[in-house]
């Protein structure tokens, strides 16, 4: 019963009880990206409720979990107060862990990784570095070619990163959290 265990894990990590959902669809009705998703949020809830392994994998491999913007409209309106955004956070980490990734996740993960890499060494976001790394990761060399210089001209881009003094703590935070998970995986 591996799949039932997944639902239990989900509940213990996020507090979300999937059986509370009675499929009214209000989350989907108000979701700004539902039409772009493989499965809208209420459908994801239903897939989870079936408790089958196939459906769990279907969710991990969908773009739904990656397109969720965590805008929390669904949670604000859910009559059963089900924390779908928190659940989506969890499912994203699980998809990475299981390495079941929808193609749509690639630029989004690349962006997040570039972002985190940028702050890992300096403690603060280095936007120019972020864009450069993102382009390198996604091979989108030509994207935003006009915006970056304009930003620079308006004084919105620093050429050099800002560094905090206590970079040791930053290093430790990364080592003990996200990198810790990665090594466990390997």
């Amino acid at each position: 019963m591996e799949h039932k265990g997944k639902i239990t894990d989900l509940q213990s990590h996020t507090g979300v009880e999937v059986m509370r959902c009675y499929q009214c669809g209000k989350c989907t009705a108000g979701c700004v990206l539902a039409t772009d998703m493989n499965f809208p949020p209420s459908y994801v809830m239903r897939l989870l409720q079936t408790g089958t392994k196939e459906n769990y994998i279907k969710i991990l491999g969908s773009n739904s979990i990656w397109l969720c913007l965590n805008c929390e409209n669904c949670l604000g309106r859910c009559p059963m107060e089900i924390d779908i955004p928190k659940m989506m956070d969890y499912l994203r980490t699980q998809a990475i862990k299981e390495n079941i990734l929808h193609p749509d996740s690639k630029p989004i993960i690349s962006f997040h990784r570039s972002f985190l890499d940028s702050i890992k060494y300096t403690g603060r976001l280095y936007e120019l570095g972020l864009i450069a790394e993102f382009k390198a990761r996604t091979f989108r060399v030509t994207q935003d070619l006009t915006i970056a210089p304009a930003m620079f001209l308006k004084g919105k881009l620093h050429l050099l990163p800002e560094k905090i003094k206590d970079r040791m703590t930053m290093k430790r935070i990364f080592a003990k959290t996200i990198e810790n998970v990665k090594t466990e995986n390997k």
Binding site: T93, I109, K176
Partner: peptide, 17 residues
């Protein structure tokens, strides 16, 4: 000596971070 809050990237990738 403040640092970045981690924004969306951190909570999408790792809860503890």
């Amino acid at each position: 000596d403040w640092n970045c809050c981690g924004a969306t990237a951190a909570h999408s990738m790792n809860e503890e971070l």
